[in-house]
């Protein structure tokens, strides 16, 4: 508790890196996942159901499996080995982006699909095309979409397996809250682990409070 109250330098560094990695991953996943979800809502093409099923399945992807795949991609002998990204924060962002992307894309599709069902005929009556229609749906579903982003952030910030494998938990380089908690616990040093646990728990509770707030705003809309 003292470390948290006194804003211990190591603890702050770890918290900031954790937030930087997770927020970057969510931002990148949002830029790719939201248009992908919208596209799956508005356009019909062969194999669409398969893509949706895969997307839904990847929402439950085990982080360690994803970490292993990213490790193989980024390792020296892998297809992306030449970029030397393994054991860097960028590798962790890459892994978390892949972890969060299906969540954001699938929840976006689900949200927009429900709205599309309600508004499709009215939009066609107004001769509103798919692209402007998508922007209107995004506006109508903004609270649910914000919830999708928060769900993605919650998943990224609490994840340990993938970042441990591709980041390597290197002190002052790739050490984040979850990997530190795991390491310190295994060492039997619980003070830092508990301090970080409190911070992580606070973040998760704050996210859930925000989700509840957004859901209540949506009911009022």
């Amino acid at each position: 508790m003292r470390m948290v109250a006194e804003a211990d330098e190591d603890l702050v560094e770890i918290v900031l890196l954790s937030l930087e990695v997770s927020l970057s991953a969510v931002a990148i996943a949002a830029v790719i996942g939201m248009p992908l979800g919208a596209w799956l809502t508005m356009y019909r093409f062969p194999g669409r159901r398969v893509v949706i099923a895969l997307l839904n399945s990847f929402m439950g992807m085990p982080p360690v499996v994803l970490g292993l795949v990213v490790y193989l991609l980024l390792s020296r002998a892998g297809p992306l080995g030449q970029y030397g990204l393994l054991f860097t924060p960028q590798a962790m962002v890459f892994a978390q982006t892949l972890l969060v992307l299906p969540i954001i894309a699938a929840l976006t599709r689900q949200t927009l699909d429900d709205l599309h069902r309600d508004y499709d005929e009215q939009f066609r009556s107004y001769r509103i095309g798919p692209l402007p229609g998508t922007f209107i749906l995004i506006r109508e579903g903004r609270y649910s979409l914000a919830t999708a982003l928060l769900a993605g952030f919650g998943r990224a910030s609490a994840e340990v397996g993938a970042v441990m494998i591709v980041g390597g938990n290197i002190n002052h380089v790739t050490r984040v809250m979850t990997t530190t908690i795991a390491m310190e616990t295994s060492k039997g040093d619980f003070s830092l682990a508990l301090g970080l646990g409190i911070v992580l728990l606070t973040i998760v509770i704050s996210i859930n409070a925000l989700v509840l707030l957004l859901q209540s705003r949506e009911k009022l809309a």
């Binding site: 508004y119 107004y126 109508e140 809309a221």
Partner: peptide, 15 residues
Amino acid sequence: PAAQGMVFQKPVVLR
């Protein structure tokens, strides 16, 4: 779009 309109059985309103 202004030439013809349609009102549906279940009213469609935006949020």
